[in-house]
Amino acid sequence: MTATVLVFVLVVFVVAGFTKGIIGLGLPTISMGLLAVVLPPTEAAALLILPSLITNVWQMLDGGHLRSVLRRLWPLNLGVCVGTWGGAAFLSGLGGPYGALALGVALILYALSGLAALKLAVPRAAEAWLGPLAGVVTGAITAATGVFVIPAVPYMQAIGLQKDELVQALGLSFTVSTLALAVTLAGGRAFTWDLAWPSLAALVVAILGMRLGQAVRARLSPQAFRIWFFAGLLALGAYLAARGLV
């Protein structure tokens, strides 16, 4: 990794951590989207594992609702694991022929759902079958792209979790997705010692960015930021999808 690429990687993780600090998500989405411009998808995903895991464990443990969200969301998270591992085998893992296209489409769908402020409602009785289904689809997208937000995040918003519950639920789901992806990458021998120091540096700057974002969130309205955030993801997703098609 050249010095120029390393500086770019660190800037990406500062921005991604800052975004996560403000709205509670976005670190893997932004990181994978931007790193895919300069790095192979498998290498980008390997760099993402440590910063994503630590920041999500922190978010998962920060609150008093972990037991309740574990009890309610275990079918979703089990589906995420099944979908990630099954998807890796079916799609030949990250960096397959449709990796860039799939990542672009995932980013576009996520951005459109955010810009449209979709408010879906899932009846409690439907969670038993819809949760595992959403998890499997999310896992398959994770295996292909390294991004684990579609459709898990809209699903968690739709089941009526309160604000603090939702933040911890996002941390839990992202932690499970990160670990499942790590198993897939380890099986493909994506982790190398060459990525150790860049990954640790990325962790440090991601935490700094996250803390800064948390401080800014207390002073600024997140609504305006979300509009710019999702608009940027939409443009980035369109670029990656077009590159995948070409």
Score class of each variant (00 low, 15 high):
residue 191 F to I: 07
residue 74 W to V: 11
residue 129 W to F: 13
residue 173 S to T: 13
residue 202 A to T: 12
residue 136 V to N: 08
residue 1 M to A: 08
residue 8 F to N: 03
residue 30 I to P: 01
residue 40 P to F: 03
residue 128 A to W: 15
residue 157 Q to P: 04
residue 13 F to D: 05
residue 86 G to Y: 11
residue 159 I to L: 09
residue 144 A to D: 03
residue 150 I to Y: 02
residue 53 L to Q: 06
residue 3 A to S: 05
residue 24 G to V: 06
residue 190 A to S: 14
residue 58 W to G: 01
residue 133 L to M: 14
residue 51 P to H: 10
residue 117 A to D: 13
residue 99 G to E: 03
residue 110 Y to L: 11
residue 19 T to A: 14
residue 115 L to F: 01
residue 32 M to N: 01
residue 82 V to M: 11
residue 129 W to T: 08
residue 63 G to F: 06
residue 150 I to V: 14
residue 146 G to V: 03
residue 32 M to W: 02
residue 64 G to L: 00
residue 208 L to N: 08
residue 85 W to H: 13
residue 221 S to W: 07
residue 122 V to S: 01
residue 85 W to E: 12
residue 213 G to M: 14
residue 196 A to D: 10
residue 115 L to T: 00
residue 116 A to P: 00
residue 240 L to G: 05
residue 203 L to M: 15
residue 15 V to Y: 04
residue 241 A to Q: 06
residue 124 R to K: 13
residue 194 D to V: 06
residue 219 R to M: 14
residue 21 G to I: 09
residue 9 V to W: 00
residue 243 R to L: 10
residue 219 R to T: 12
residue 36 A to L: 07
residue 92 S to Q: 15
residue 205 V to M: 14
residue 94 L to Q: 11
residue 220 L to R: 15
residue 134 A to M: 12
residue 76 L to F: 02
residue 139 G to K: 11
residue 146 G to S: 09
residue 61 L to F: 12
residue 6 L to M: 09
residue 218 A to I: 09
residue 102 A to H: 05
residue 229 F to H: 08
residue 150 I to L: 13
residue 212 L to M: 15
residue 213 G to E: 14
residue 145 T to E: 03
residue 106 A to M: 04
residue 89 A to T: 10
residue 93 G to V: 08
residue 52 S to L: 07
residue 100 A to M: 15
residue 139 G to V: 10
residue 174 F to M: 12
residue 7 V to R: 04
residue 214 Q to S: 14
residue 57 V to A: 13
residue 142 T to E: 09
